[in-house]
Nucleic acid binder design. Sequence first.
DNA 1: ATCCGACTTAAAGTCAACTTGAGGTCAAGT
DNA 2: ACTTGACCTCAAGTTGACTTTAAGTCGGAT
Lengths: 128, 128
Amino acid sequence: MTIGQVARESGLAASAIRFYEQAGVLPKPGRIGGRRMYSASILERLAVIERAKACGFSLYETRRLFFGFREGTPPSERWQTLATKKIAELDELARKIAATKELLQRPCACKDLAECGRRIYAKKQAAR
Amino acid sequence: MTIGQVARESGLAASAIRFYEQAGVLPKPGRIGGRRMYSASILERLAVIERAKACGFSLYETRRLFFGFREGTPPSERWQTLATKKIAELDELARKIAATKELLQRPCACKDLAECGRRIYAKKQAAR
DNA sequence: ATCCGACTTAAAGTCAACTTGAGGTCAAGT
DNA sequence: ACTTGACCTCAAGTTGACTTTAAGTCGGAT
């Protein structure tokens, strides 16, 4: 498949696919007349990348998933290692979001921003 | 107060305070000998900004909170408008995080990445 | 022969929220 | 007079994941 076909199939932009290659998460494909020619398995590879991305992995982390970290470790174990760390990060993020919602949902009784500022500031000072 | 004092009091870098001014979330302070001179109320203003930031508002959104959107609307109502929108965004984000955790916690039974790719891709295709 | 569309590259642009750096100014203390 | 330290402005750098642009190449159809 040409890069254009892969792009249409996967829904990614061709530029993104080139970028992924450059970033080291995609293997360098063969070339015909200078053009990248992919086998259909590239779509599966991209699906894994998409999944990793959906899980909040950076491209750097995704690259480590594929290769270059503790060679010889089975992929499932690599996944475990990365997943455990990421879950902790997500828990922390969820905690922050909950706290934020808490803050947002409490209707502000201040009649103007100046009063609001005074209250927030006073509270902040009191917390020290 | 000089910008340095404000920085020390608020815990922000002086450069951040200048940046906030430039971004339009802080009023332009008076100058003495070219230097910014702030009244103590700047700390309250900064506290509001900090709070808005903690709530996930961008500086652009925060600026709209202070001025420039539906002039004459009381601040509490502006806050309401922004808060409602932001809560919806947070709910969406929380939903995504939960889904991601779900994904991460399910141990991957695949013996290699190729199999993993085939499974994910097949599932993705089936979903269409 | 030439034209078109799909491809190639490298470099630069995008977004947010700042920070960093260079080069200059100001007022106070010695 | 001179030094010091805090401040000033403006421009450029930072991070991540890409996109956009410019200029060039390839192969097939007319």
